[in-house]
Amino acid sequence: MGTATPSVTPYLTVADGRAALAFYAEAFGARPGLRLDDPAGKVVHAEMRIGEAILMLAEPYPEMGISDPRALGGSPVTIALMVEDVDATVARAAAAGARVLRPPTDEFYGHRAARIEDPFGHAWYLASVREALNDAEILRRWQAMVGQA
């Protein structure tokens, strides 16, 4: 973490940085990295690792045009997270305060997937691979499902 990050790294804005770090650790097993707090205790930058992915977060800075999803009425962005057991992960996230938007369901593209909203307004697509499918099979299944076959 620190200066060596992947070329695309989600940077979440959350109303309560300390609570968000605790939620992500409990729900997704996030491991903490660099954290910078201002003298008043506001999280101005924090890094965490979920599996091999790095996420960053900070609390809002309206004076800099940085707001959290709840202040904006929600977010159109969904974060995709592949997990070993989607049912268990959704249960853990719900117990930690997430709202289940769509319970785990077996999908035509081979995933068992769910959608949740974390307590800070960020949407997450959580999935486990049930079948390893190639693009041609996914396309075939899609076309059959929507009546284009």
Rank of each mutant, 00 (worst) to 15 (best):
L101G: 09
V77E: 06
P39A: 14
W124L: 02
G33V: 08
V14E: 01
S75P: 12
V14R: 05
H122N: 15
L133V: 06
G121V: 03
E63G: 13
L133M: 12
G17M: 13
L36Q: 02
A20H: 03
P62G: 04
R115C: 11
F23S: 01
E52R: 15
P32E: 01
P60D: 06
D68S: 09
T105A: 11
R140A: 12
P119Y: 08
P76N: 11
M56F: 13
V14C: 03
G65Y: 12
G41N: 09
A58Y: 06
I79M: 11
V100M: 09
S7Q: 13
L12Q: 09
M48G: 12
I50Y: 03
A123T: 14
R31H: 02
K42S: 07
A114S: 13
T5A: 14
L34H: 08
T5Q: 15
E52G: 14
A20Q: 00
F28H: 02
V146W: 05
I54F: 14
A20W: 03
E59S: 02
P119H: 10
D16K: 11
G33I: 06
P62C: 04
V8L: 15
R140Q: 10
G147H: 08
P104D: 01
L139Q: 12
A113V: 02
Q148V: 02
A22S: 12
T89L: 06
A53K: 07
Y125Q: 08
M82P: 01
D85F: 13
A40S: 09
G97Y: 02
V146F: 14
I116D: 01
R35E: 15
T5Y: 11
A132P: 01
A30Y: 07
L139W: 07
E63T: 15
D135H: 04
A114W: 12
W142K: 11
P103R: 10
G17N: 15
E47Q: 08
N134S: 11
A4P: 05
T105Q: 07
T78F: 10
L81S: 04
Y11G: 07
I138E: 04
L57A: 03
P69E: 00
M64D: 14
P104F: 00
A136V: 02
R141V: 03
A96C: 05
D118R: 09
R102K: 15
W142Y: 15
E63Y: 13
V100G: 05
G73S: 04
E26V: 05
L57T: 05
N134A: 09
V146D: 03
